[in-house]
């Protein structure tokens, strides 16, 4: 794998739009397919919000985002030092349930799963959450 870009900062919820735009611009400048990049950005946005809301509980916290190229795939690795949270174990929402009867919430992780081709979680040896997204066919 070839590392393309790293973003590392102390992040708060209010900083997410700016980081999201920086990442989107970087992915496009690296030659990523616009549709694939848009999908990844939607997934990453949800992951960042989860990290801030549930991991850091609305407080600012350190987040690192790495962009990697693996063949034609774009890989995004997100790390934070928040409390452990594995989104891959979350249950799937029932998206066929009528809107009038649905509980609120549960769509963020669903979007993360559906807008990427792979989503993996691990707790690193130094005690951080590491979430990896892979989007196939992002590069020509």
């Amino acid at each position: 794998m070839e590392q393309l870009h790293t973003f590392s900062q102390t992040l708060s919820l209010n900083d997410i739009p700016a980081l999201r735009k920086q990442m989107e611009q970087a992915m496009l400048e690296l030659g990523g397919d616009p549709d694939a990049v848009a999908d990844l950005i939607l997934a990453v946005n949800e992951a960042l919000v989860n990290s801030m809301r549930h991991g850091y509980q609305d407080q600012a916290g350190q987040v690192t985002m790495e962009l990697w190229r693996a063949g034609r795939s774009l890989v995004v690795v997100q790390r934070d030092a928040a409390r452990p949270f594995d989104p891959t174990t979350a249950p799937e929402p029932d998206t066929k349930l009528p809107l009038a009867l649905r509980p609120f919430g549960g769509m963020g992780i669903h979007m993360m799963r559906n807008f990427t081709d792979e989503m993996r979680y691990e707790r690193t040896k130094d005690g951080r959450n590491q979430l990896t997204f892979v989007k196939y066919n992002t590069f020509p």
Binding site: A38, I41, L42, N45, E46, V49, L99, R102, F104, G105, M107, G108, H110, M111
Partner: peptide, 13 residues
């Protein structure tokens, strides 16, 4: 340009 899960919640509301 984009809708997040929070935006979807607003539409559901």
């Amino acid at each position: 340009p984009y809708i997040s899960s929070a935006g979807l919640r607003a539409i559901q509301f």
